[in-house]
Amino acid sequence: MPKSAGHPAAWRTIRTDLRRHWSIYMMAMPVIAYYAIFQYGPMYGLQIAFKDFQPTKGIGGSPWVGFEHFNHFFNGIYFWRLIKNTLLINAYDLLFGFPAPIVLALLLNEIRGRLFKRFVQTVSYLPHFISIVVVAGMMADFLSRAGLVNQILSSFGMTPVDFLKEAGWFRFLFVSSGIWQSVGWGSIIYLAAITTIDSTLYEAARIDGAGRWKQTLHVTLPGIMPTIAILFILQMGHMMTVGSEKVLLLYNPLTYSTADVISTYVYRKGVLEASYSFTAAVGLFNSVVSLILIVAANSLSRRLGDNKLW
């Protein structure tokens, strides 16, 4: 980031920079305007996290309450469980869900038949379009006590498992169904990145006697590394969020101990009392943690391979 702008030397640098690149800065105007108006403009709304927001009084007119909402959240008896569950689901997702589309893209890249490849690509991205409600409904059907999965299990002589009622299974089911739904969709960006790799690099590798495995390892993977790194950094920004919709459809009080996450807790509290302020306070807390994680991931990635956001 730029050094303190009060220094005369810094001013000189800025002046030169503006003079030299004025055409790019002019070009940036609509983008800067967009971010200023539509992203930073509404940010005054964050203050309701410290207020008791009342629709009749508006954002400015609602009374300040300081950290009251934060205290309620942090002091709730389920606070640590919520944090743990949220982080663990995301950690599983990072561990398995993040690499899955990369692996799929690499495997697709190895397919020689063009039509077959296109077919697999198209088919594998279909689940992305099926709504969560239907996905959850199918899971409940197939995973129930008398469902398909248990029929298969018992035909192999195994004892049936009541998957959706056992807390131990929740994370696995949640993350794996998520992978199933998004792996094809997620692989698209990597497939695009692979196509932009300079083909002369492959030729050079072949001349050096590299087989396909070596080519993948030494050309393809490094070629998409910037994309991987950037997506990794951005993924860190989601470590504190698990969407409530799917959890609400899949969990029940028996699996609360592993399934109840921040967003579902906020949802249940919202049923008792529509509280913009509490929701905003939790959101702000998540945002702060997310930003810290992004900054950390960014500096880690910069140190490891000079792939960085800023």
């Binding site: 730029p2 971010y35 992203q39 403009g41 913009y276 959101g283 702000l284 930003l291 956001l309 800023w310």
Partner: peptide, 30 residues
Amino acid sequence: RSQLYFNKILMFLIVVTMVFQGGLIPSYLL
């Protein structure tokens, strides 16, 4: 364009909007 002096701060400010949002009400009013 990494040669821009403001590149880093611009990028940081853009990334910030990914995690911090004003919420529905101010957007609606806007």
